[in-house]
């Protein structure tokens, strides 16, 4: 959870991590997010990086700021579902792509899925 790849901007990776936690329900619908400082300690990054990541996520609508009270996860279930579907199809097409590169045709993939469960 706290591992970052130094090759890519840290804030972008943090955006991805937090969004995943929202989708998975770790930060649940309508709940209050930890403060910037708490998030900095949780993810072991600089508070400014957290700030930047949060404002990026806020632009997607997945979180919102309640004046002086901190940041909250959206109540918009549809938006979370949409984000989840989008991420899931990205992961899936990457997987299919990787399998194709191994010379495994699309109709053979299901065999591997069953074996690997």
């Amino acid at each position: 959870m706290n591992s970052f790849d130094n090759d890519r901007p840290i804030y972008i990776q943090l955006v991805e991590k937090i969004i995943k936690s929202i989708i998975s329900g770790e930060y649940s619908l309508g709940s209050k997010l930890p403060s910037v400082r708490e998030l900095a300690v949780i993810y072991k990054v600089n508070p400014n990086t957290v700030q930047k990541a949060l404002s990026e996520i806020e632009d997607t609508g997945l979180i919102y700021t309640e004046r002086t009270n901190g940041k909250y996860v959206t109540n918009n279930e549809k938006l979370i579902k949409k984000t989840k579907d989008k991420l899931a199809s990205e992961i899936t097409s990457k997987y299919i792509d990787d399998m194709n590169k191994l010379g495994i045709a699309f109709n053979e993939i299901s065999d591997y899925l069953r074996e690997g469960k």
Binding site: R8, P9, Y11, I12, V45, N48, K52
Partner: peptide, 25 residues
């Protein structure tokens, strides 16, 4: 991972400064 900004120094001169994430990008 904890840096906002980086300052590269070589032979007594500052040779590069900038935002860490910007440089990575």
């Amino acid at each position: 991972r904890v840096l906002d900004e980086v300052i590269f120094i070589d032979k007594g001169k500052i040779v590069l400064t900038g935002e860490a994430d910007e440089i990575r990008k």
